[in-house]
Amino acid sequence: MTAHDLRGGTVPAGGLADGPVAVLANPTAGRGRHRDLLPAILDRLSATGRDVRLLAADSAAQSRAACAAAVAEGAAALVAVGGDGTVHQALQAVAGTDVGFGPVPAGTGNDFAVDTGFPAEPLAAAQAVADALAAGRTRPVDLARLSAADGTVSWYGAVLAAGFDAIVNERANRMRWPRGPRRYDLAIVVELARLRPRRYTLRLDGRPVDVDAVLVAVGNCASYGGGMRICPAADPTDGLLDVVVGGRFSRPALMRVKPSIYRGSHVLHPLVTTYRARTVELAAEGITTYADGERSAALPVTITAVPGAVRLLG
């Protein structure tokens, strides 16, 4: 029996193929606080009896290329040790294939791993992945497929940010000073001073919706930014995307509502509207989106929920 491969071929149904386990590790994730755990993580994976191969990569581009090469060369599984950025690069290689995927949360933001049921503690997550490897067990989880205006296609697992949060990220990435988290804090101050609602055009499964908003997020999972439950009802197994729109917020109102995002209660605010759709077309001027915290495509984009696009180990 075979199942459809989202890249256009077929994959074996059930179980995990023979082959090595490729490991992508970001030693700088989480400011390096879990760097010393990598040998123990590799030991747990090796105890399954499979060949474990640590991938060499020093940048996001190299990480993506190394993962793609490992999958092309027959890896049965790919394990990403790091935060959401590391997971994001790895997902580009495994999305739509039968390759098992194991996220081991070791970053500042670990939203995809935690929201899909993995322990937040790295060694516990590594053991869960190892147990699944030993049993040859995977489970299907949805991903979001992002199509840009230039035809480029990518995937994300957690949330696409396309509003104030994305604008702040873009500002912070352009700044050369200060270093560290203070740069992001300063970017927030600068962009708050410039805050204004923008006109967004959405099509939700073909239904047009025009809104003036300061915040737009499209979630496959509930959280981004290290536990901010921006799309609190999102379920990565329901075949749908959750869209959260924060309307014409003033600066004081936006700052007042921000703490409630960690609880997910911001969706009760009268200026917040939520939608659910399989396909979301999103357009606005001057916005570069961020998916899984990584710089992504400029609007307009089309986002499609793809059921069972990745096979998780655990």
Rank of each mutant, 00 (worst) to 15 (best):
T2K: 14
T2D: 14
A3L: 15
D5K: 08
L6R: 14
R7P: 13
P12W: 14
A17P: 11
A22M: 03
P27K: 04
G30W: 09
R35D: 10
R35Q: 11
R35P: 04
L37M: 13
I41N: 02
R44W: 08
V52K: 07
A56D: 11
A56T: 04
A57F: 00
S59F: 01
Q62C: 01
Q62A: 12
S63P: 01
C67Y: 01
A69G: 11
A70W: 06
A76M: 02
A80D: 07
G82E: 04
D84L: 03
G85I: 01
T86I: 02
V87N: 03
A90S: 09
L91N: 09
L91V: 12
V94M: 09
G102I: 03
P103G: 08
P105C: 04
A106H: 11
A106V: 13
G107L: 03
N110P: 05
N110I: 05
D111I: 03
V114R: 15
V114I: 14
G117D: 09
F118K: 05
A120I: 13
E121W: 02
P122L: 06
A124W: 05
A126F: 02
D131N: 14
A132M: 04
L133Y: 01
A134I: 01
A134F: 03
V141I: 12
D142N: 03
D142Y: 05
A144Q: 00
A148D: 12
A149H: 10
D150M: 08
T152D: 15
V153P: 05
G157H: 05
G157I: 02
A158N: 10
A158D: 04
G163H: 00
F164S: 02
A166E: 02
E170W: 15
R171G: 07
A172R: 14
R174M: 11
R174C: 12
M175S: 10
W177A: 13
P178Y: 08
R179P: 13
R182D: 15
L186D: 11
L186K: 08
I188M: 09
P197N: 08
R203T: 04
R203A: 12
D205N: 01
R207M: 11
V209E: 10
V209A: 06
D210I: 10
D210E: 14
D212F: 09
D212A: 13
A217G: 05
V218R: 00
G219W: 00
A222K: 03
S223M: 10
Y224R: 06
G227R: 06
R229L: 14
C231G: 05
D235T: 06
L240G: 09
V243M: 00
V243F: 00
V244R: 00
R248Q: 12
M255I: 14
M255D: 12
I261V: 15
Y262I: 15
R263A: 13
R263H: 11
S265V: 09
H266E: 00
P270A: 02
P270N: 06
V272P: 00
Y275F: 13
R276Y: 00
A277S: 02
R278L: 05
R278H: 14
A283F: 01
T288F: 07
G293W: 07
E294Q: 10
P300I: 00
A305L: 03
V306R: 13
V306Q: 14
V306W: 14
A309P: 01
L312G: 04
L312V: 05
G314R: 01
